[in-house]
């Protein structure tokens, strides 16, 4: 198809595209560069290279433990959420009808639901039943992560040839054996992709965790937020942010090696 744009329109279009990518990526790039500054206060660009603020980050007890806690929480919540999402998708995939539609809507709802309201509703519920902090936070993040896995696994199941599963069953395998030996080997890349998104979402999640964290159970994003609010924007925040971004790059790279980049981008 020929381009429907005249030359001046193409120049304007080029500027819009460049500007869009600039404003999307600049805030992250500025933070990462500033994190390696040796100066006491924010200075951009930094005069030289230093790891000073990373040492400072790991010297701060609160920051260090929030970082570790966030990693453990994301691992646990993503795994729990992926398990739930996969079970839900396997159940929903072969059914039609009104009830099934309702179930699908229920499993997808946390994806678009205002997270701060979910956090508040869970806070009230947890206070009423005396839920301890860490399991409460773990379940909250699993609920938010579940739809990501549900969606990827459901898409994968729907593109599956039903004859393959029927072959397994006609050869005498029960439903459990068919799931474990036939279906799972075919859908595990989708499970892993969903797990990745659940991990990333949990690791960066803010608005639900806002009400559910507390002493001994604070996530890195919440620690960064309260530090920004009460101690001002010191450069240790830039280092903390860089570690947040770094871990995400690492885990995306790791999963990408196994399932391929195309699967992650097209979900």
């Amino acid at each position: 198809m020929s381009s429907p744009w005249s030359l001046p329109a193409r120049i304007v279009r080029g500027i819009v595209v460049a500007l869009a990518f600039l404003v999307i990526l600049a805030p992250i790039v500025v933070v990462i560069i500033a994190a390696f500054s040796p100066t006491d206060f924010f200075k951009f660009p930094p005069p030289s290279f230093s790891l000073r603020w990373f040492y400072e980050f790991f010297r701060l007890e609160n920051m260090r433990s929030a970082f570790l806690f966030s990693m453990q929480l994301a691992l646990g919540a993503a795994t729990f959420g992926a398990l739930l999402g996969t079970l839900a998708a396997v159940f929903v995939a072969k059914r039609r009808g009104f009830v099934n539609g309702l179930l699908q809507a229920l499993f997808m709802a946390p994806l678009v639901f205002p997270t701060i309201i979910l956090g508040f509703a869970l806070l009230l519920f947890y206070k009423t039943v005396n839920m301890p902090l860490t399991p409460g936070l773990l379940i909250a993040h699993a609920v938010i992560g579940m739809p990501y896995c549900f969606r990827t696994v459901l898409a994968s199941l729907q593109s599956l040839d039903p004859a393959i599963e029927e072959a397994g069953q006609s050869l005498g395998a029960g439903p459990l054996r068919t799931l474990a030996l036939v279906t799972m080997p075919l859908i595990w890349p989708a499970v892993l992709t969903g797990w990745l998104f659940a991990f990333v979402v949990s690791f960066g999640e803010l608005n639900t965790a806002l009400f559910l964290t507390g002493p001994g159970a604070t996530t890195l994003p919440i620690e960064i937020f309260s530090y920004l609010q009460f101690q001002g924007s010191q450069l240790v925040i830039a280092a903390a942010s860089t570690l947040q971004v770094g871990l995400i790059i690492l885990i995306v790279f790791g999963v990408q090696q196994v399932v391929g980049l195309r699967r992650i981008v097209s979900r």
Binding site: V31, Q244, V245
Partner: peptide, 9 residues
């Protein structure tokens, strides 16, 4: 990337 990082940016 966490929104707190992007807002801080």
């Amino acid at each position: 990337v966490s929104n707190v990082v992007r807002a801080y940016g």
